[in-house]
């Protein structure tokens, strides 16, 4: 499944105390299906906010967001949740696995929302764990897995419902160089299997694995990366 993402004039504000801060200023963006986009920028530039909006985790205060032609900024919460389950896979910097569930059960979570039989769920979980190379670790708890393995489980979880779009927020932020490269390699493989990927990162080397790189600063897309100490 491939995906088209279009953002038109998107505005997002946050209230901090009595002030209102505009985090995204009239942002326009188009992502072609099958793209592997890296979003870079200093902290506070709004890149995570942008990711959240694309994934329907938050609502914009202005503008339109279309994913595959659907106006997700206008979707009511219930259908939006269901939409997320079908179409989006999330990968976080600190994995966000359930500590008391095994790898297999963690991966299974998105499937609980679909009318599948136990056997079907098991089959898909096994398949996707194989793809990420963790076939033998299905019954381990996150505490028994290394950082890289945990991120693979998270990726498996993001894949298991076969979404068209993967949203990654600093996926290699907590990993050492070698492991990071492995994960990024995996993401590339998934991209070649026609998953659209939008990845937020501050790591230039990670961005090298992407097909496109966009820079953000102070809530807007900029054409040139600013020279900043990160």
């Amino acid at each position: 499944m491939t995906s088209d993402i279009v953002l038109k004039n998107v505005v997002k504000r946050y209230r901090r105390g009595r002030e209102q801060i505009e985090v995204l200023h009239h942002l326009n963006l188009a992502v072609t299906a099958g793209d592997f986009l890296a979003l870079m920028g200093p902290s506070g530039s709004g890149k995570t906010t942008l990711l959240n909006l694309i994934g329907g985790l938050d609502r914009p205060d202005g503008g339109e967001i279309l994913v595959e032609g659907e106006r997700i900024d206008r979707m009511p919460p219930g259908p939006l949740a269901a939409w997320r389950a079908r179409n989006i896979g999330f990968i976080f910097q600190f994995y966000n696995l359930m500590p008391s569930l095994t790898a297999a059960r963690n991966v299974e979570l998105p499937l609980l929302l679909a009318p599948l039989s136990k056997a079907d769920r098991r089959q898909r979980v096994d398949a996707v764990l194989d793809i990420v190379g963790l076939g033998g670790r299905a019954n381990h708890k996150p505490s028994q897995l290394s950082g890289g393995e945990q991120q693979r489980v998270a990726i498996a979880r993001a894949l298991v419902a076969d979404p068209g779009l993967l949203l990654c927020d600093e996926p290699t932020g907590d990993l050492d160089r070698a492991t990071a490269d492995d994960i990024l390699g995996l993401l590339q493989v998934l991209n070649h299997r026609s998953k659209t990927i939008v990845m937020v990162t501050h790591d230039a080397r990670a961005a090298e694995h992407a097909s496109h790189v966009l820079h953000m600063d102070k809530g807007a897309l900029v054409s040139e990366p600013r020279d900043m100490a990160l």
Partner: peptide
Amino acid sequence: REFAVLKALGFSD
């Protein structure tokens, strides 16, 4: 955080 993750995965409110 864990409940937020569930919501992100598509669990409704």
